[in-house]
């Protein structure tokens, strides 16, 4: 039973990676040993205060969030980066409003040896541009990824994409030189307060409710691109991890499930699955095809 996987030339001692924005520095120490890489909350060029509350709504087997990328900006973020050093590769998630923003962020991060890979958040449903999610169409995915890859100077660039148009987006990212794609981001969702007769929250849906949608995106993208896939969306058990890998994921991100479970338990369950089946983690990748 071997948990190791290789992703973009990096060895991950487990295939689990936290999803951006779900694993703060307060949680990092408590989950040491579980994750094959660390991935802090998305950072933007300038500080962002985030969206006014309410920012959360609970849904059947899931939740909607609309945080709005609250973060201290890349310079402050870099000063606090050591808090995320647990001896495993550090991935950094970035977002901007223009291709130039992504390019600037990638240049800044590529110059720091602590950063081993950069994930482009191209699909945050809570930050909009011109009524469309930024990078909602393949042409802009390609433009942004190309700019990011050029600025990253050889460091692996991962493109995190929306569920809608996942295959086309993954193909565009691959054409533009992405080292991997992360599928999927939260799904655009709405909560309505019937009693007050008003919208309670407009945001992104996560949790076990979206798992089948995410699995399908991973499965189809696996057939369409040659670069590795990080599966993400509703992963909450060790069996879920196995399912995403079988559908084609090389590594699997744990998001909001980390709020309601100890990620150690998820890793324990996944290890149990490997022991029962007599397989190594890497044997699972795409094996359902």
């Amino acid at each position: 039973m071997d948990l190791n996987v290789e992703l973009c030339g990096l060895r991950l001692h487990t295939p689990l990676v936290p999803a951006a924005g779900t694993h703060g520095k307060e949680a990092v120490q408590a989950s040491e040993g579980v994750y094959g890489a660390v991935l802090p909350k998305t950072v933007t060029p300038q500080p962002r205060t985030g969206n006014p509350p309410p920012r959360l709504a609970e849904t059947p087997a899931g939740m909607i969030n609309s945080i709005g990328l609250q973060n201290p900006g890349v310079e402050r973020f870099m000063e606090e980066l050591d808090a995320f050093d647990t001896g495993v590769p550090l991935f950094v998630s970035v977002a901007g409003e223009t291709a130039g923003d992504y390019s600037l962020l990638c240049g800044r991060l590529a110059a720091d040896d602590r950063v081993r890979a950069i994930e482009l958040n191209l699909s945050c449903p809570n930050v909009e541009r011109g009524g469309l999610y930024f990078c909602a169409v393949p042409a802009s995915v390609e433009e942004v990824v190309a700019a990011a890859v050029e600025a990253a100077g050889g460091k692996p660039v991962l493109a995190k994409l929306a569920s809608e148009g996942a295959v086309e987006g993954a193909q565009a990212a691959e054409r533009a030189g992405a080292a991997a794609v992360t599928l999927i981001n939260t799904l655009p969702a709405l909560a309505v307060d019937a009693r007050r007769r008003e919208v309670r929250l407009r945001g992104g849906l996560s949790g076990p409710a979206i798992k089948p949608v995410a699995l399908r995106a991973v499965y189809e993208a696996f057939r369409a691109v040659g670069i590795p896939i990080l599966g993400c969306g509703g992963v909450a058990t060790g069996t879920d991890v196995a399912e995403f890998m079988l559908a084609g994921a090389t590594a699997v991100q744990i998001g909001s499930a980390g709020f309601v479970r100890d990620p150690r338990e998820i890793l324990r369950e996944f290890s149990g699955y490997l022991r029962e089946t007599g397989l190594d983690a890497r044997d699972l990748i795409g094996a359902a095809h």
Partner: peptide, 27 residues
């Protein structure tokens, strides 16, 4: 405040600050 993670990760339990911006009720 309504909370999701309760440990500072999700920024869901935002409380508006007098000086602008938000703090997390959980941490």
């Amino acid at each position: 405040e309504m909370m999701a993670c309760g440990e500072g990760s999700c920024y869901g339990c935002a409380v508006p600050l007098a000086g602008g911006g938000y703090a997390r009720a959980c941490v």
